[in-house]
């Protein structure tokens, strides 16, 4: 996760106008008593064959996983919300629900504004297709017109700095190139609310600096960002509100400094986590 506080990553234009106070802004996202339960079949791949074999025995084959349990919070526009928590805490699941991908099992989500997702490993990319095709398809799938997508395309390609790789199938990309493109798409789609799920960690030092500067710019422009990250420093640096999830439950929320401290004590790894940054 690139941050403006890393010495090698410090953005040149870090000093800008102060961020507006979110307290004066309208409501952006409101989550009321949200619960999300996955119901998966016991077998890894459900098939007709196994269903027929099972039919005689009448076994229960559904297993329920409560990924998010009765979580409530709300943020105003201009908030950069950091979400921290261990693996399997339900962070990605909650983000997908806000994006409208996973319908809630119980509860209610209210989202004011256009959402752009920058979820783990890419924006629905198909690796058979070229970077260019993926960018255009992604834009069209989100309801943009071809002209709008074409207009954005140059900006996206310029920012990602992939050169002729934009016209190569994405299966030939390294994971760093993949994420550079994903980052570039996410931030250039002009979202009102940007969802970021651990998608910012790759790229070389130069790209990290650029990405950090861009994130900083978005934060200053009072964009609403929900940031899931294992990089505590980046949450500390960018977020002005923080949620801590554990096993689907909301443990605490509030000032990033306080919440992260609490989370760290909970993990009993303390400062060690800083050393794991960007590994």
């Amino acid at each position: 996760m690139p941050t403006a506080s890393d010495p090698e990553v410090r953005a040149p234009a870090a000093e800008g106008p102060p961020r507006p106070d979110p307290r004066d802004q309208p409501l952006a996202v409101r989550v009321d008593n949200l619960s999300i339960t996955y119901r998966t079949s016991v077998e890894k791949v459900p098939t007709l064959k196994s269903a027929i074999k099972r039919a005689g025995r009448r076994e229960r084959t559904i297993r329920e996983i409560e990924a998010v349990r009765d979580v409530s919070w709300s943020i105003n526009h201009g908030t950069v919300l950091g979400v921290v928590g261990a693996n399997g805490a339900g962070k990605s699941t909650m983000l997908r629900a806000i994006a409208g991908i996973l319908p809630p099992t119980r509860g209610r989500i209210e989202v004011h504004g256009r959402v752009s997702t920058l979820l783990a490993l890419g924006v629905g990319f198909n690796s058979q297709l070229t970077g260019r095709e993926n960018v255009i398809l992604g834009g069209l799938a989100q309801g943009k017109t071809e002209a709008e997508v074409q207009a954005k395309y140059e900006e996206i390609a310029d920012f990602a700095e992939l050169g002729e790789f934009m016209d190569m199938p994405m299966k030939s990309y390294s994971s760093g190139m993949y994420q550079r493109l994903a980052f570039s798409v996410g931030v250039h789609m002009d979202p009102d609310i940007l969802l970021v799920d651990e998608a910012l960690s790759a790229g070389d030092a130069r790209f990290k600096r650029k990405a950090a500067a861009k994130m900083d710019e978005l934060c200053r422009a009072a964009r609403t960002i929900i940031l899931v990250s294992h990089g505590m420093a980046s949450v500390r640096e960018m977020a002005n509100h923080c949620l801590w999830l554990h096993k689907g439950k909301l443990m605490d929320q509030g000032d990033p400094e306080a919440i992260i401290g609490e989370y760290m004590r909970f993990l009993e790894v303390g400062e060690e986590a800083f050393a794991m940054e960007d590994v």
Partner: peptide, 11 residues
Amino acid sequence: GGGKMIMNMAF
């Protein structure tokens, strides 16, 4: 076959 697209985009 549309796994990533379905997991990461609402459409």
